[in-house]
C-alpha cells in the first residue's frame, strides 16, 4: 500500500515538468498536487500516532538486565518518547544533513580536472 502511494507521489513532479517541456531548466517544478499528497501523508502519520501505543525507548523493562545505563535523567532519552518526536527528528535530520553538505561543499567541491583530469 505504502509502495504504491510513494510511486504515485513521485510521478507528480514529472508530469508537471513534462507538460512544461523545459529541457534546459534545471530547477525541478513540483506540482501543487504533489505538495498536497505529501502533506496529507505526513498529516496521516501524525494522526495515526494519536491512536497507537508507542513502546517507550531507553526504559528498563521487565526481564531486561538492570545493569544497563539508567537513562531516566537523560533529556535526549526522555525527548525520544515525546509525541511527534519522529516527525520533528526526521525534519531536523534532513535539514541538518543538507546544511552540513552545503557548508562542506565550500571546502570539498572542486573542478573536474582537480586530479589531472581524471575523476
Amino acid at each position: 500500500m505504502t509502495t504504491k502511494k510513494k510511486a504515485t507521489r513521485k510521478k507528480a513532479p514529472a508530469n508537471k515538468a513534462d507538460a512544461k517541456a523545459t529541457p534546459a531548466q534545471d530547477n525541478p517544478h513540483l506540482s501543487p498536487r504533489f505538495w498536497k499528497i505529501m502533506l496529507i501523508l505526513c498529516g496521516t502519520t501524525v494522526l495515526l500516532e494519536l491512536f497507537v501505543h508507542r513502546h517507550p525507548h531507553f526504559v528498563i523493562e521487565k526481564g531486561e538486565p538492570a545493569t544497563l545505563p539508567d537513562m531516566s535523567d537523560s533529556v535526549l532519552a526522555t525527548m525520544s518518547n515525546w509525541f511527534g518526536f519522529y516527525g520533528v527528528y526526521g525534519l531536523l535530520a534532513c535539514v541538518g544533513s543538507v546544511l552540513l553538505a552545503k557548508g562542506l561543499s565550500v571546502f570539498l567541491k572542486t573542478g573536474k580536472d582537480y586530479y589531472d583530469g581524471t575523476p
Binding site: 534545471d26 516527525g87 520533528v88 527528528y89 525534519l91 543538507v98 552545503k102 582537480y114
Partner: peptide, 23 residues
C-alpha cells in the same frame, strides 16, 4: 512519519541542492 517528514524537507530544500558538474 520520520521518512515522510524528511522527504518533505528534502523536496522543500531541493533548490539548495543544485547538482553541479564538480567532484
Amino acid at each position: 512519519q520520520m521518512l515522510l517528514f524528511s522527504a518533505l524537507m528534502f523536496f522543500i530544500l531541493l533548490p539548495l541542492l543544485k547538482r553541479t558538474s564538480t567532484i
